[in-house]
Structures are given as structure tokens and as C-alpha cells.
């Protein structure tokens, strides 16, 4: 397996997501989603034993997942973290620092601890849920506009000068 991804979220409501949603409601009321979720998104590139290695890492390093306050799942897996709200149309966007110390430091830490892995990449995954009448194309378009901070009153979730923005193919 070349890449294993995990999603990590707070067990309690995420204050960053709540603040982001209330800010978006104020600056972009017409295009704002009904729900906004935030996840730490970790990509493990070429782990020796695939998911088994990643699970070992996650259970060992509580800085990646603190089991007292966070839950996690493999990305694209059983979806235990998904809200399960069938009424919403979800679009997902990944925000990654162009120069990223977190990823570099974790790659070093894991290698020092003898984990056979090429590298680790850290991003923030934002999941935006729109009302059921919204088409997927529209949801994706709105998500991109709300993510890219181009002007003071346009966009919030990423600063394109220092961050890469990737709209994911499917929610």
C-alpha cells in the first residue's frame, strides 16, 4: 500500500469549526454551508505494513491522536466519524502548508523510532455540508470560494500565499 490516510477529530464540538462557521455566516451568508467539520488529516506514505503500521503509530504517539479527547478512523473506510446526515451534500477540501514543519518533524520522529515509512504529511480537512437542494457541482464551487482567502471579505479557511488547497473528488 503506497499511502494510508487517517482523519482525526475532537470528540467534543470543534471550537475552530464553530468559529469558522459563524465567521463565514457573517461574511458570506448566501453561500455559507449549514454545517462545517474540521479534521486533522494525516497521510502516511509507504508504511511497511500498510494500515497495521499506521495503527501502531497512532496508538503509540498520543500527539497524533490523544485518545482522551480525539477519535480517528482510516480515511475512506467505514466512515465512523461521518455525521451520517443524509440530508446534506458534503464537499471536502484539504489545506496544507506549503512549507510544513509538522510533517517534517513527524517524519524524523518516526524514522528515529525505526518505523519503516517514507514520510508523513499533515493537513487540515474541512468538510462542508450544504442543504439537500444543492448540486455537488455547486457545493464544490462554493467550498472553493469559501476556502480561498482572496480578499478580506472573501474566503477564510486557507491563505493561498502560504497554503495549498485541494478540493477532494468526492465527499
Amino acid at each position: 500500500m503506497t499511502e494510508v490516510s487517517i482523519e482525526v477529530r475532537l470528540k467534543a464540538p470543534d471550537p475552530a469549526a464553530m468559529t469558522a462557521l459563524s465567521t463565514l455566516k457573517r461574511i458570506n451568508p448566501d453561500t455559507c454551508p449549514g454545517r462545517l467539520e474540521r479534521y486533522d488529516y494525516w497521510r502516511f506514505i509507504r508504511p511497511l505494513d500498510g494500515k497495521r503500521t499506521v495503527e501502531e503509530i497512532v496508538l503509540h504517539f498520543h500527539d497524533i491522536v490523544n485518545p482522551n479527547k480525539q477519535s480517528w478512523s482510516f480515511s475512506g473506510g467505514s466512515g465512523i466519524l461521518l455525521s451520517g446526515d443524509e440530508e446534506l451534500v458534503w464537499a471536502e477540501v484539504l489545506v496544507t502548508d506549503k512549507v510544513d514543519s509538522i510533517s517534517e518533524n513527524w517524519t524524523d520522529i518516526l524514522r528515529r523510532n525505526k518505523y519503516e515509512i517514507e514520510k508523513v504529511m499533515y493537513s487540515v480537512l474541512w468538510r462542508l455540508g450544504y442543504s439537500s437542494g444543492t448540486s455537488m457541482a455547486e457545493a464544490r464551487e462554493r467550498t472553493l470560494a469559501l476556502t480561498i482567502t482572496s480578499y478580506r471579505d472573501h474566503g477564510l479557511l486557507a491563505n493561498p500565499v502560504s497554503q495549498n488547497i485541494n478540493l477532494l473528488d468526492q465527499a
Binding site: D97, S101, S162
Partner: peptide, 28 residues
């Protein structure tokens, strides 16, 4: 910076960022 007041080449446009510290041997 996030207000687009600086550098302000185009008013209100976000043209720079204050990114996470990153220099050889140091971060955080």
C-alpha cells in the same frame, strides 16, 4: 496581513502570509 492592509498593493487583497516559523534547525 489577513486584512489585506499590508502590503496593500491592491486594497483588501490578501497578498502575503505570516506562515509557521521554518528555518534550518528550528521550527515551532
Amino acid at each position: 496581513v489577513e486584512s489585506g492592509l499590508v502590503p496593500g498593493w491592491e486594497n483588501g487583497r490578501i497578498e502575503s502570509a505570516l506562515a509557521a516559523n521554518h528555518i534550518h534547525g528550528r521550527s515551532g
